[in-house]
């Protein structure tokens, strides 16, 4: 082939530019750690980065949401457990004072303790987390129980998303647990039956009211089971979520992050080829017949 001056200049220029371009790209990958900047760099990876990025953000938020709901449910669980302890004390009192060996005065003191248990339970049921009443269903802005144990809340259960598209109850129904809505027993009623029998010094009445306390205890145990169920659902959802997040993160890194070793060796290679291109170009420019014609 006949080689002309423009050819060799153009070619040298083109090769130097290409080598510089490769070196710059390799340098960008090494310094940013990313192999995809513009969607055109790798269209499929760019798309995956978008959807995985959103998915990770969603899983992240779901995890945080579960954590704050968890705080509420744990508090609820503790409150219900205290109720259960108080009921056990009431039961103990009723069994003890139901025996005919006790005097009216002793039974009256027992009645007062039962009343105090009842109002403690009201207080427990009006527990707030960050200013929010947790036993009122979706009515969380006002105390769900008044002083005499009447329910002011609603019959709804609050729900949150614990996995994309999956809803889980994050509250228990206090009207069911405490007031026996749907065929259960009114715990406050059972307590006041014991308390009034004690106040009336009615031993047989006290013994008769123990059955109500037994039912109440069962009802509270059921409530504890459901708070426990919610907490374990939260826990497993968080575990599943963190596995999902981890795998999404892996996919994201695999698509978006540059392999450091590969990027570095690419950079070295690109720099060497740039150096070679520069050296060869400079050399070829210096060889001309003009140097020999005198």
């Amino acid at each position: 082939m006949r080689v002309t001056n423009r050819m060799s200049f153009d070619q040298a220029q083109g090769q130097m530019m290409a080598a510089r371009d490769r070196a710059l790209q390799a340098q960008q990958q090494v310094t940013s750690g990313k192999r995809v900047d513009h969607p055109g760099d790798d269209p499929a990876a760019a798309g995956v980065m978008v959807s995985q990025g959103i998915a990770i953000q969603r899983l992240d938020t779901i995890d945080k949401t579960i954590s704050s709901a968890q705080g509420e449910v744990q508090t609820a669980d503790g409150a219900v457990q205290s109720v259960s302890t108080l009921l056990a004390r009431a039961q103990q009192l009723a069994v003890q004072l139901g025996s005919d060996t006790y005097s009216a005065a002793e039974r009256s003191a027992g009645a007062q303790e039962i009343n105090s248990i009842s109002s403690q339970i009201v207080q427990l049921m009006n527990t707030q987390v960050a200013g929010r009443y947790i036993f009122g269903g979706t009515k969380d802005s006002a105390p769900p129980f008044d002083a005499s144990g009447n329910y002011q809340g609603d019959g709804n259960v609050r729900q949150i998303e614990i996995a994309p598209g999956l809803l889980q109850a994050s509250s228990i129904r206090a009207d069911v647990a405490m007031k026996g809505a749907g065929g259960g027993i009114d715990v406050f009623g059972a307590l006041s039956a014991v308390s009034s029998a004690l106040a009336n010094n009615d031993g047989a009445g006290v013994r008769g009211a123990i059955a109500g306390l037994d039912k109440s205890t069962d009802q509270i145990s059921a409530a504890l089971t459901s708070t426990g169920g919610i907490l374990s659902a939260f826990e497993s959802a968080q575990q599943v979520g963190s596995v999902a997040k981890e795998s999404a993160q892996k996919v994201l890194s695999a698509q978006s992050e540059a392999d450091v070793f590969e990027a570095t060796s690419n950079l070295t290679m690109a720099q060497q080829s740039l150096q070679a291109a520069l050296a060869v170009t400079a050399q070829s420019f210096s060889v001309t017949l003009l140097n020999y014609l005198k």
């Binding site: 969607p39 980065m49 953000q57 992240d60 704050s68 949150i160």
Partner: peptide, 30 residues
Amino acid sequence: TALNPDLEGGLPNAMGVFYSSLQTWSQNPG
């Protein structure tokens, strides 16, 4: 560059943040 996948404040990012705020809100809507 508006469709760059890693763009700070880009559309994918803003969509994620928007839904996150709804998610957080859902736990305590009041």
